[in-house]
């Protein structure tokens, strides 16, 4: 975390030297969105069309996030940072650590799975709040496993790396939900990833990308507080383990333009050897610049 923050400060200093852009505080409160579990600007499990941070057209922003997911038999930690330029392009870097249950550790393949995700997203059209049509963005998440041994052992076609491509549409409708502001997002993701990539990519029978739909709906109860629901369709590639779609309900608190904290109840279904995985999702994003 410390190293990442230092790297962030360095990146910011370099950018500040070469461009007169000012700090990213130009968006309306809570319209920066959150950081999703793979490091892209989004909701919690779904990448949105939003460009991370509060930067508008003349501004840049840097943010850091940390997400912890604790379900019945597993825990996932994700941390990372992102750099957004002019509300146009977002670069993100995230590291996921997935703790394995003791039954799996006994097999001798390690006690956690680590994955690094390199993300880039470009806003193609629109403004989340002001344009008539939704904001549209295209993004890529390149995922690299630190050690593909487990993925290979359970039958993944690609055991160490894979790339997701997604197209997302997001829109805020002012006052549309009985006077409350409504936000929705719809994402189509082409992916081969098994459990986001933690269990590798594809299988002997699934060699190509499949398109999965992901959706989020939220209501802003005040300028600072949002509640909502998310759904993420997932592929089910591996013969050995069933993979289920994911869903969560969340509450997000955005006290100011420097910080947000989101708590969710997630239902992740079957993950590898364990069924009906439900639990808590807790995520914070700090906007450093």
């Amino acid at each position: 975390m410390k190293i990442i923050r230092k790297a962030g400060l360095l990146a910011v200093s370099l950018l500040a030297l070469c461009h007169p852009a000012t700090a990213g505080d130009g968006k309306l409160l809570a319209t920066a969105g959150l950081t999703q579990v793979e490091g892209s600007g989004g909701g919690g499990i779904v990448p949105w069309a939003t460009i991370n941070g509060y930067a508008t057209k003349e501004q840049i922003s840097v943010s850091a996030f940390n997400t912890h997911v604790a379900v019945d038999d597993y825990q996932l930690n994700a941390l990372g940072m992102s750099l957004s330029l002019f509300n146009r392009v977002e670069f993100s870097l995230a590291r996921q650590s997935f703790d394995l249950p003791s039954a799996v550790i006994e097999l001798g393949l390690g006690d956690e799975i680590n994955q690094t995700i390199y993300g880039v997203k470009a806003r193609l059209y629109g403004d989340l709040v002001y344009s008539t049509w939704p904001q549209i963005s295209f993004g890529i998440q390149h995922k690299k496993l630190a050690d593909g041994a487990i993925a290979a052992a359970i039958g993944a076609r690609e055991s160490d790396r894979g790339t997701d491509y997604y197209l997302a549409a997001s829109k805020v409708h002012l006052g549309a939900a009985g006077g409350y502001n409504l936000i929705w997002n719809l994402t189509a993701r082409a992916t081969q990833a098994n459990q986001m990539g933690l269990l590798g990519f594809g299988s002997q029978t699934q060699e190509s990308h499949q398109v999965m739909l992901e959706a989020s709906v939220g209501v802003l109860l005040s300028r600072k507080l949002a509640v909502g629901f998310e759904y993420r369709q997932k592929p089910d590639n591996l013969a050995a383990f069933k993979e289920d779609d994911w869903a969560d309900i969340f509450i997000s608190y955005n006290p100011n333009k420097h910080f947000n904290i989101t708590l969710a109840w997630a239902n992740l279904g079957n993950i590898a050897v364990a069924d009906e995985q439900q639990g808590i999702y807790l995520s914070t994003t700090g906007y450093l610049w």
Binding site: V129, Y130, H173, L174, G175, A176, G178, G179, Y180, N181, S222, R223
Partner: peptide, 12 residues
């Protein structure tokens, strides 16, 4: 709050 949003929706 909700009436504020209706005003903002008119002028946005």
């Amino acid at each position: 709050h909700r009436l504020q949003n209706r005003v903002l929706a008119i002028f946005a």
